[in-house]
Amino acid sequence: MFQTRIHGRGGQGVVTAAEMLSIAAFLENRHAQAFPNFGSERTGAPVVAFCRMDDKEIRLREPVMAPDAVLIQDPTLLQQVDVFQGLRQDGFMLINSARSFEALGIGDIARNMNPLRCVCVPATELALRFLGRPMPNAVLLGAFARLSGRLAVDSVAAAVRTKFSGVVAEKNITAARAAFDEVDRQLTQQAGVTHS
């Protein structure tokens, strides 16, 4: 079972991101379960959502406390919420930011993890560029597909199309693919660093 936790703020589509992730897994004939960390949260409040993926039926209903991957849609949460709670050292970390881990003040944490599994992606900037709106959720899923290697980016695209329609869906998908490429570029570069 692969468990992902998504952190963001109300209005950023955190819950939708987890749902799309589960749909992408479903489209690859896997079992998936997405659910929000339920609350009556208003716009701007910290929001958490979860997604489990497995090859067999998922019966477990507890919140994801030891995630395999953490997606941070809003880096301002880093100082506010214990977003890395339970994250394994060999887990995945994806942060929506144009800055480095050091600049974000989490250099210590990142250094303790596998560098090929930790990435910052400027998802909001990509969303603004392709969508014209600062909605990082679908964009980050493209990045997540490349980082985790658990999903095909085409599945993410198909999942996006179930939640958005027409031009909005296509723009989101374009942005998601750009994020996929960005992660690919960073990982290739990182692999070079690691091997040299």
Partner: peptide, 10 residues
């Protein structure tokens, strides 16, 4: 509530 009503599953 929420655990099932708001959960996406197959």
């Amino acid at each position: 509530g929420f655990i099932l009503t708001h959960a996406y599953e197959r």
